[in-house]
Design a protein around this nucleic acid. Structure first.
Lengths: 218, 218
DNA sequence: GTCTATAGCCTGATAGAC
DNA sequence: GTCTATCAGGCTATAGAC
């Protein structure tokens, strides 16, 4: 009996793992479809075609097309947050950390344009991300603000930078660079177009926007 | 005979005018549809429904859905250019002219979000604007660059501002502010959200990005 | 220029057999 | 969890009568 139960448990685990792999594969294909035909061009039929199954089978994994969008949104937020965290660890504290994390986010966004559009441009009016899918974005704002607070503590920026407004300022510079790059150079990755060189130049203006009272670190 | 010909001409003129009115009405409705269901949600059937005709009738005015997109794109570019020109006339020369025109463009863009998305974000991959529809955009870059050159001549900015890069810099600040405003405050007009106050602040950094050699005008 | 009718596609989603 | 079959609807675009 114990053996039988163990076999049963193993079987369940294996099935759960296999199921998760299928879910990931569906999302991979969905992202590929979006990058070819646009975020709105995603269709479950096309995903099923590429996966080699019939459309109804997908409903065993996602209850609706919007659920697929939500999973893609969440996946993108998680990946973007991870990339930014990793970049932060390798950078000097304060302002360099802010710039490095946003630079990494730009690299990621241009390598995952469709996801980035879904996340930051909301081109599907009928889709609203769930609170759970949106959570990493809130976390990202928090760590941005913490990094800006470090820059203030280090005397690199004035106190106005460690506010919501400071986060908005760096967001505007980042999303502006990305918007121009994606609209005007759809095939170039980050750092290869005419717009990415302006990103560090504009970021270097932050001390002029929030001047520190005394200058310590450069 | 002469009278008959004149009557014929009048009749043709009247028909031409009436036809143009219908075309404008179709574009008005198409813009309204896009603003409700997204740029990609535009369908000729829905336009026909609201116009009170059957879908095939629209093909007497536009040969295809993409032709409607192209006319909308052109219309948006023309309107945006006109708004920017008007704002320029009322502003002091040089830097204030640059800022005033882009501020006016922001007001227009948030009042015509769907058109702005179609023009600046390209959310319909299968749609490429025609050269004719794109022409006003090229003109806009030219007048921006001329205004930046004025600012350089007036000693407000260094010579680096009167370049393609200078135009990119102001474009990034503008499109970044717009992107954040549209994604995060979908219902607020320009000047009422959390992001538009940052637009003049970031624009005020331009002299720090392109420092003039001697300071004349402030 | 309007209409009806229709071709020929696509889609999301469900029911039910296996 | 897979399939077939199907519902119920959408769409662009064309043909042809009036």
């Amino acid at each position: 009996m114990g053996v039988t139960i163990d076999q049963g448990s193993e079987r369940v685990d294996r099935r759960t793992r296999r199921r998760q792999e299928t879910i990931e594969e569906i999302l991979d294909i969905a992202e590929a479809v979006m990058s070819e035909v646009g975020v709105n061009g995603l269709s479950l039929s096309e995903v099923a075609r590429r996966l080699g199954v019939q459309p109804p089978s997908l409903y065993k994994y996602f209850p609706s097309l919007m659920a697929v969008y939500d999973a893609l949104f969440r996946r993108g937020q998680v990946a973007n947050l991870a990339v930014m965290r990793a970049a932060m660890e390798d950078a000097e504290p304060g302002l360099p950390t802010v710039v490095a994390s946003l630079d990494a986010a730009c690299t990621w966004a241009l390598a995952h344009r469709a996801l980035a559009q879904l996340m930051f441009w909301r081109p599907v009016p009928s889709f609203e991300p769930s609170a759970e899918a949106f959570a990493p974005s809130i976390e990202m704002v928090a760590i941005q603000r913490a990094a800006l607070a470090d820059a203030v503590a280090l005397g690199q920026l004035g106190p106005g930078a460690a506010t919501e407004e400071g986060v908005y300022a760096v967001s505007i510079i980042t999303s502006g660079t990305l918007t121009q790059a994606m609209a005007n150079e759809p095939d170039l990755p980050w750092r290869e177009g005419r717009f990415s060189p302006l990103f560090p130049k504009l970021m270097a203006l932050l001390p002029a926007l929030y001047p520190p009272k005394k200058r310590r670190a450069g």
